[in-house]
Amino acid sequence: MQKKVGIIYRKNCDKCNRPSYSSSEIGSWKCPICHNDLTNYPFFDAITFEQIHIHYVLKKALKGYQNVYYPNDHSTNQNKKFNA
């Protein structure tokens, strides 16, 4: 499912039974009423109340940014090239 432009996300707090709304799917998410951590709760479309499955896609996208493209001894490899 592609991300819709201008979508508002909803999460339901099971501690105070109140909805919480946000326009961002990243970062921590605290209930504004009771401060319960809703970060790992499922996302819902605030208008249609349909569950949105973005958690897996987001984790996969974030994992892509964790790749290391240089070896740990990158600086010593550069020195070997110039000293050779």
Rank of each mutant, 00 (worst) to 15 (best):
M1K: 10
Q2M: 10
Q2T: 05
Q2H: 07
Q2E: 15
K4W: 05
I7A: 03
I7S: 06
Y9H: 06
Y9I: 03
R10I: 00
K11N: 08
K11Q: 14
N12C: 05
N12L: 09
C13N: 06
C13M: 12
K15H: 08
K15C: 07
K15T: 09
K15M: 03
C16E: 11
C16Y: 08
N17A: 04
R18Q: 14
R18V: 04
P19K: 02
P19Q: 07
S20K: 04
S20A: 15
Y21F: 15
S22T: 15
S24Q: 11
S24N: 13
S24H: 07
E25F: 07
E25D: 08
I26D: 09
G27K: 14
G27N: 11
S28E: 11
S28V: 04
W29I: 00
K30D: 09
C31F: 05
C31V: 07
I33W: 15
C34E: 06
C34D: 13
C34R: 04
C34S: 06
C34N: 05
H35A: 06
H35P: 00
H35Y: 09
N36D: 06
D37V: 02
D37F: 05
D37Q: 06
D37W: 14
L38Q: 10
T39G: 08
T39Y: 13
N40F: 10
Y41T: 00
F43V: 04
F43H: 15
F44V: 01
F44G: 01
F44N: 02
D45F: 01
D45I: 01
A46Q: 02
A46G: 01
I47W: 02
T48D: 11
T48Y: 08
T48P: 03
F49L: 11
F49K: 10
E50W: 04
Q51G: 01
Q51N: 10
I52G: 02
I52W: 02
H53Q: 10
I54Q: 13
I54N: 11
V57I: 08
V57C: 02
L58I: 13
L58G: 02
K59C: 05
K60N: 13
K60P: 01
A61G: 00
L62K: 14
L62Y: 02
K63C: 03
K63E: 12
Y65T: 09
Q66W: 08
Q66I: 00
V68D: 12
V68E: 15
V68W: 03
Y69S: 01
Y69I: 04
Y69E: 04
Y69H: 12
Y70P: 00
Y70A: 08
P71H: 14
N72D: 12
H74R: 13
S75P: 00
S75Q: 13
S75N: 13
S75W: 08
N77F: 10
N77D: 07
Q78F: 14
N79K: 15
K81L: 14
A84W: 07
